[in-house]
Computed example of a mutant assay.
Amino acid sequence: MGGAPGTTPTTSTRSETTVIRIIHPQPELGRQTFLDVEFVDGTAEVAELHPEREQAILQHGFIIEEHLVGVRLEDLGVRELRDVAEVEGIALPAKAKKAEILALIEAAPLRTLSDVAEFDLEAESRREFMAAHTVPLGADED
């Protein structure tokens, strides 16, 4: 995998299909750099993150999210599919089997940004916007 700014080879167990998003605790429009990681408008995306750098970033109040990309739903387990359904706002029967969960996820309409949150950047600061509209991976969405 090619290196992105701020990345170094790691022995981490992250999959090659994972994108790591880092959210700056004090986001600003434009470019910022912290520990050789370049942030654009308060966020950075990297393919790899050295464990020591990850620890330092977390200690300084940054939020780290991991996102799977290029993964087929059929390759996920039931627990992971339930997580996908929860994030997408899809109600599942308590005892739904994998095939039923897949069918419900695939039948759900695609969400757009306007479905998730309508916002006015002039009325909110960038930091307030990010705090109100960012859900870390694995967090419950209300």
Results as ranks from 00 to 15, higher is better:
P93I: 10
A85W: 00
R14F: 11
I90V: 15
R111M: 10
L104A: 11
L102I: 01
G61E: 03
T134W: 04
L58T: 00
L113C: 02
S125P: 07
P5C: 07
L73K: 09
P93S: 07
P25D: 12
E106T: 07
E122W: 07
H60N: 15
A44S: 08
G61L: 13
L76D: 00
I90Q: 01
D140G: 12
D75N: 14
A44L: 06
P109W: 05
V19I: 09
R21H: 03
E122G: 11
R82H: 13
G3P: 01
T134C: 08
L29W: 15
D115C: 03
Q55I: 06
E66F: 05
D36T: 06
S125N: 09
A139E: 13
E124T: 15
P109E: 05
E118C: 05
G6M: 06
P136Y: 01
L58Y: 07
A4K: 15
V78W: 08
T13E: 05
S114A: 11
R127D: 09
E38H: 07
T18C: 08
I90T: 02
R126G: 04
S114G: 03
F34N: 09
L121C: 03
R111S: 07
T43R: 14
V116S: 09
R14G: 07
R82L: 05
A123L: 08
T8S: 13
M1C: 08
R72H: 11
S125Q: 05
A132G: 14
E54V: 02
L49M: 02
V78K: 10
R53G: 01
V135L: 08
E122L: 13
A56V: 09
A132D: 10
D120V: 04
A4S: 09
E38D: 12
P93N: 07
R31I: 14
I63D: 01
E128S: 09
H133S: 06
P5H: 14
A139R: 09
G6L: 04
A108S: 15
A99F: 02
R127Y: 05
H60F: 08
E141Q: 05
L58R: 11
R82G: 01
L76E: 01
L113R: 15
D83G: 12
I22H: 01
V116M: 02
E80K: 11
I23N: 05
S125T: 15
M1R: 09
P25K: 08
A132E: 14
A4T: 03
A85R: 00
D115T: 09
V135N: 04
A131G: 01
S15I: 09
P27S: 06
S12T: 13
A131H: 03
D140H: 14
R126F: 10
L137M: 13
E52V: 03
L73W: 04
L35V: 01
P93Y: 07
